[in-house]
Simulated assay, not measured.
Amino acid sequence: MKEESMILKGNSLSLLNEFELILESDPLIDEVGFIHPSQFVTLNKEASSSLEHEDANFWSRDHKLAISTDVLLPLYKAVKDVFLHAISQYKRHENLSDASWDEGNLESEVMKHSKALLLLSCDFGTAWNFRKLIVSKKQHILIFLDELFLSALVLSYSPKSEQAWCHRRWVIKMIAGKCSTMQDIVGKESELVEKIAERSKMNYRAWNHRCWLVSYMTTEQVLHELKKSRNWAGLHVADNSCFHYRTRLMLRVREDHCHKLEDGTSDGNDEIYRIWQEELDWNEALIKCYVGREVHLTKRCPTGLRNSLLIHLP
């Protein structure tokens, strides 16, 4: 029994080494998924002969990674064990304040194993927290951007992961005011939410993240988002999250207008009244278009937005 346990542990560590080697060899992997072993045959037939990685457990090509469901449990147990050991070593040496300890090596071990762990268990809070701890010590923009890339990879297989969305907000807070491309990052964040919303319907966490982003947008970005999200909302009337997002955008337009009035830089109320009236007219058209539908959400969402706009009419 003991020998069997040792063999299983050895096999699990071998799987982990293979998994982490794939992640290191292709740092641009942007999508991960878990598939039944029988699906590997189909993937191999559809792919050309020049696969980056192919075996019975993992499949990697064009920055996409597939993991066999057969190895998930032993792989998870192995990476969890090595991660917990790594953070134990890290905390022990940090508490001892030993000048001889290789901090960089231990940090890289924690980061490597935490990445593998989060790709198998997206809500493992300790892994996210230790990444925050190490990244915050570095205070380097590129490392923060790597965290955005990792959390996007996690969201590719778990689009409703609260931990992943929270991690993205933490990163944005940390780089706000320090990054010259902040507005580009905010724009890409909004695009990410829309992309995820297309394949993950009624994703409250994603839309809540997009609402949170509004406070980091410029006035021009807010107006652009209003225009861009109108088409999406018109095609997804039952998804009330998008209408909540538009309400947040409209309120931001109103806030900016009030600030301009206080500063004496506004030309008057004509522009904001025009924006408000266009929104109400469009909203009324949606309500009339979807009257009589069986799904009550198709009426509730536009009506809720309309009521909110009327209440906050400048």
Rank of each mutant, 00 (worst) to 15 (best):
E3L: 14
N11A: 00
N11G: 02
L16W: 02
E18P: 02
L21S: 08
D26G: 02
Q39L: 04
F40S: 04
N44K: 06
E46Y: 14
S48W: 08
H53P: 02
S60T: 04
I67W: 03
T69M: 15
L72I: 15
Y76A: 09
S97W: 12
W101N: 05
D102I: 03
D102E: 09
V110A: 00
C122L: 07
D123N: 05
I134R: 07
K137C: 09
K138Q: 09
Q139R: 15
Q139A: 12
H140M: 10
I141H: 15
D146I: 14
S151A: 05
V154Y: 02
E162R: 15
E162L: 15
I175N: 15
S180G: 07
M182I: 06
Q183W: 11
D184H: 12
K195N: 02
I196C: 01
A197Q: 03
R199C: 11
C211R: 13
Q221I: 07
E225C: 12
N231A: 14
W232S: 05
R246E: 02
L251Y: 13
R252G: 13
H259E: 14
K260V: 01
L261S: 10
E262K: 04
G264F: 00
D267N: 13
Y273D: 02
I275V: 02
I275H: 08
W276H: 11
Q277E: 13
E278G: 03
E279Y: 06
W282Q: 00
W282R: 00
A285C: 05
H296I: 10
K299V: 06
R300M: 10
P302M: 05
T303N: 15
L305M: 12
R306W: 10
I311L: 14
H312R: 13
